[in-house]
Computed example of a mutant assay.
Amino acid sequence: MTGQTMPRARTAMSPGVRARPRVKWVPGVLGAVAAGLVPWVFVLGRTLPATTEVRHWPAAWIGLDLAVALGCATTARWYHRGDARARLSASAVAALMAMDAWFDVLTARPGTEFSRAVACAVPELALAGVCTWLVLRDTEELP
């Protein structure tokens, strides 16, 4: 679809829209994974240490920020071109920004570091919101 405008979002209520046939096993697999993660979360809650030392801490955060930068650049490019794939990259950026804010706040030490993490979480979550809006909005009017 490069160079074309994005199609209207397909919904179950859109008349005349032919969607691809659904793959029957997908809901079962995803439902099983979701159900299996519930007890796993309790196992983690009881077994993970309260603190830990992390190797390559700077590389982990730099890599995350580079992934966000690449995702933003890709989304900007595709959106500018009217490419429907902008929704995919925007979705990834939204997830990364929410995760970034979550880990910033939860790994910060009390006091000034925590206050800074919360202050940084505000624009991170705002970007996640903008990207989510982009994913969900009716994009028929894109350039």
Score class of each variant (00 low, 15 high):
R8T: 15
R8V: 15
R8W: 09
A9T: 10
A9C: 03
R10F: 11
R10A: 15
T11P: 05
T11E: 11
T11V: 13
A12H: 05
A12Y: 05
M13P: 02
M13R: 15
S14D: 14
P15S: 06
P15K: 04
P15A: 03
G16N: 14
G16F: 13
A19G: 07
R20D: 13
P21F: 01
P21V: 05
R22T: 14
R22D: 12
V23E: 12
V26T: 08
V26R: 08
G28T: 01
G28H: 03
G28A: 02
V29P: 01
V29W: 06
L30D: 09
L30P: 02
V33L: 15
V33E: 15
A34F: 02
A34R: 09
A35C: 12
G36Q: 01
L37N: 09
L37F: 11
P39D: 06
W40Q: 10
V41A: 08
V41Q: 07
F42I: 12
V43W: 07
V43P: 00
L44Q: 14
R46N: 12
T47S: 13
T47W: 14
L48A: 15
P49R: 09
P49K: 07
A50H: 04
A50E: 12
A50N: 04
T51R: 13
V54K: 00
V54W: 00
R55P: 00
H56N: 11
W57F: 14
P58H: 08
P58Q: 07
A60F: 09
W61H: 15
I62P: 01
G63R: 10
G63V: 10
D65I: 02
D65L: 10
D65C: 04
A67V: 02
A67K: 03
A67T: 03
A69E: 14
A69S: 13
L70H: 14
T74M: 14
T74N: 09
A76E: 01
A76Q: 02
Y79R: 15
R81C: 07
R81H: 13
G82D: 04
G82K: 12
G82I: 07
D83F: 00
A84D: 04
R85Q: 09
A86N: 10
R87V: 06
L88M: 07
L88Q: 09
S89A: 10
S89Y: 05
A90T: 08
S91W: 06
A95F: 05
A95C: 03
A95D: 10
L96A: 11
L96G: 01
M97V: 02
A98R: 12
